[in-house]
């Protein structure tokens, strides 16, 4: 069961990401990104991070992707086919991190990644997260800082979008 859900969501994330990179049309890439992000939310759930998975869906799929699509849908329908030349440089850039990851995965270096034979029993995370966010010893300062950053972004976007007086 766990194996099946893991492979299903992993395939969703990987195929989605590949489609984002390879599809010629911008809108198709955006929809493929929805698929990839949902796959990642599913992976979080498989690993027992229920709250994080739901946040991933709510923020990325339900919020950011919709705004993304909002923008992309109204752009002209251009398509850019990829060929060997256009992906040569990005491809070379990807080779090194991919090689490192594959090496780690292949050899299973315990120091870098600890492979668990079975997944741990999923535990509810919401309560702990709520406590830690408001704990001075833990993450109170980063939490408040993040909310200040969000507030600044909010005020900034209102400033940019306001109706200017005609001069």
């Amino acid at each position: 069961m766990e194996g099946f859900t893991f492979y299903f969501f992993a395939a969703l994330a990987l195929v989605g990401s590949a489609m984002v990179a390879l599809l010629p049309r911008l809108v198709h890439s955006a929809f493929a990104l929805v698929m990839a992000l949902s796959g990642i939310a599913g992976l979080y759930w498989t690993l027992g991070a229920d709250f994080l998975g739901a946040v991933q869906l709510l923020v990325y799929v339900g919020g950011i992707m919709i705004l993304f699509l909002y923008g992309v849908m109204l752009t002209p329908k251009e398509s850019s086919r990829w060929n060997l030349q256009s992906i040569l440089f990005p491809g070379l850039l990807c080779v090194l991190p991919l090689a490192v990851l594959l090496h780690l995965g292949w050899t299973g270096v315990e120091a870098a990644v600890e492979f668990l034979p079975t997944l741990p029993e999923p535990e509810p995370t919401t309560k702990t997260m709520g406590k830690w966010f408001l704990d001075r010893e833990k993450y109170l300062v980063p939490f408040e800082l993040a909310s200040i950053v969000l507030l600044v972004a909010l005020v900034g976007s209102v400033y940019l979008a306001r109706r200017r007086k005609e001069v």
């Binding site: 739901a54 869906l57 799929v61 339900g62 919709i66 919401t126």
Partner: peptide, 25 residues
């Protein structure tokens, strides 16, 4: 009986919007 219960409903129902946007485009 998910621990995130009501939050799960909020999160998953936002997926439906994608379908409507997809249909429109």
């Amino acid at each position: 009986n998910l621990d995130i219960g009501i939050f799960f409903i909020l999160a998953i129902s936002s997926v439906g919007t994608i379908g409507v946007v997809m249909a429109g485009w």
